[in-house]
C-alpha cells in the first residue's frame, strides 16, 4: 500500500478534486466479446453512441470511427441496438 497517499497528503473530506479521473481506470479487461465496426454498412445514426453506458463509442465529425477498448466492457448494447437495416456492429470473441 506504500504508493497510496497517507492522511497528511490526502485532500480533506474524502473529496475528489480531479474530475473525470476514472478514465485512468481500465475496464476493458472485463470484456469477453468486443464490438467491431463495419464502416461500409454504418449509417452513422449514432444510436450506439448515445446508448453506450461506458462512453466508449468514438465519434468524430458526426461519424462513428471506432471504440475505446480501454473502457468498453463488451456488453453488446451497441451491436444489439444497431438498426436492423445496417447491422454495422458485430460482437467478436476478444483475444
Amino acid at each position: 500500500m506504500s504508493e497510496l497517499l497517507g492522511w497528511k497528503d490526502m485532500p480533506i473530506g474524502g473529496i475528489i478534486f480531479e474530475s473525470g479521473s476514472s478514465q485512468r481506470y481500465v475496464t476493458g479487461g472485463w470484456r469477453t466479446y468486443k464490438p467491431v465496426h463495419a464502416q461500409d454498412r454504418c449509417v452513422h445514426c449514432l444510436r450506439c453512441w448515445i446508448l453506450c453506458p461506458d462512453s466508449a463509442v468514438l465519434v468524430e465529425n458526426g461519424r462513428l470511427v471506432g471504440f475505446d477498448y480501454d473502457h468498453c466492457k463488451g456488453c453488446g448494447i451497441c451491436a444489439r441496438e444497431c438498426p436492423a437495416k445496417c447491422r454495422a456492429i458485430e460482437m467478436e470473441l476478444d483475444r
Binding site: 476514472s22 475496464t27 466508449a56 480501454d70 473502457h71
Partner: peptide, 10 residues
C-alpha cells in the same frame, strides 16, 4: 467518462 464500474450492459 468511462472507467466507472457499473455492470457491463447496465
Amino acid at each position: 467518462v468511462g472507467g466507472h464500474r457499473s455492470c457491463a450492459g447496465c
